[in-house]
């Protein structure tokens, strides 16, 4: 008989693993991926392929030659970053820009902090914002001819066909008539925008999968969406439009829920979500950018350590007054 193995308790482990959690997220992204390719065709596929390849390669190179550690590709986190970054880009973006964004996302936003689990800001969003600030024109030019959903808006068809998203149009024409917007088109991806944000229904399917597999909890997505709808209503917008048109769904379900850059406790997560929703709507209404989700999430990422500090779980049996 071999020597008995000795270790401290517990002696059994759940089947959880980082790889499992990450692949759950990847699976949840598949419906949105399908919608993106269906809506934008081959250019979308090219952007996704470039982002994925660059992110994975970049992570492999850094881990192998800078950290001298075993490869971390298999945990799937670089794949998620690549997919999410691609989802945040227009299909018409030059491919080299997508590659640059991927390098920024992995090398600067993730690996420079020490790799998975240590970054402060969501890597994919950092990459996206880097591109948005560096190449504003390319990042806000949308492919033409796909936006049948936008074309249905009365009086805005000219803008739509020249490749504008609904939110861009709305930002430029605050008073425009929204009654004719076809919500069904917004849900099914029949509109213009970044790759991943067009199919709200697909994102909702992903959300249901993530909740069912307990990969994420409801607090962050629900609080973001509820808060965005509330503030949209307060500031005189159309809550449904704010939720469905643009990157809010994508951000709320896949970006803000990133484990590493979101708060730990349920209470903290709700505060985080409410503030993201609020900032998003403020940027959309009062800022010059038509879209505010990325900035809102990155901004709140910075506050996560603070939120963690003030939203401690309450120790069992401790009285509230004892604090």
């Amino acid at each position: 008989m071999n020597n008995l193995t000795v270790s401290l308790s517990p002696h059994i482990h759940s089947r959880n693993s980082i790889t499992r959690e990450m692949w759950n997220v990847i699976i949840a992204l598949i419906p949105a991926l399908a919608v993106a390719i269906w809506t934008f065709g081959l250019p979308a596929l090219a952007v996704i392929a470039v982002c994925l390849a660059t992110c994975v390669l970049c992570e492999w190179l850094i881990v192998r030659f800078l950290f001298h550690r075993p490869s971390t590709i298999a945990d799937g986190s670089a794949i998620i970053t690549g997919l999410l970054l691609a989802f945040n880009l227009p299909a018409s973006i030059p491919l080299w820009m997508a590659a640059v964004g991927s390098v920024v996302a992995i090398a600067i936003a993730k690996m420079s902090f020490g790799g998975l689990g240590r970054n402060i800001w969501n890597p994919a969003l950092t990459g996206r914002v880097f591109l948005l600030i560096s190449f504003p024109a390319a990042m806000t030019t949308w492919p033409e001819g796909v936006a049948s959903g936008v074309a249905h808006i009365s009086g805005a068809s000219a803008h739509a066909n020249s490749g504008a998203t609904l939110l861009t149009t709305l930002n430029a024409h605050p008073g425009m008539d929204l009654d004719s917007v076809n919500i069904l088109n917004l849900l099914t991806g029949n509109m213009n925008g970044s790759l991943g944000e067009v199919g709200s229904l697909a994102i909702i399917i992903g959300l249901i999968y993530l909740l069912a597999t307990k990969t994420i909890k409801w607090q962050i997505p629900v609080s973001i969406l509820a808060s965005a709808a509330f503030f949209s209503f307060i500031f005189g917008g159309n809550p449904l439009l704010d939720l469905l048109a643009g990157g809010l769904m994508l951000g709320a379900v896949f970006m803000a829920t990133d484990y590493v850059t979101s708060p730990m406790t349920a209470k903290g997560q709700i505060i985080y979500g409410i503030l993201i929703g609020m900032i998003t709507i403020i940027i959309r209404r009062f800022g010059s950018y038509p879209e505010g989700v990325s900035f809102a999430i990155l901004l709140m990422n910075s506050f996560v350590p603070l939120i963690n500090r003030y939203c401690r779980p309450r120790v069992f049996g401790e009285r509230r007054a004892a604090k």
Partner: peptide
């Protein structure tokens, strides 16, 4: 000679907190 195989954290402090060693 080893009589057991310690499979916990490679830390003397933690190992000693549990038992007398391998």
């Amino acid at each position: 000679h080893e009589a057991t195989h310690y499979d916990g954290v490679r830390s003397c402090a933690i190992e000693a907190g549990y038992y007398g060693g391998e």
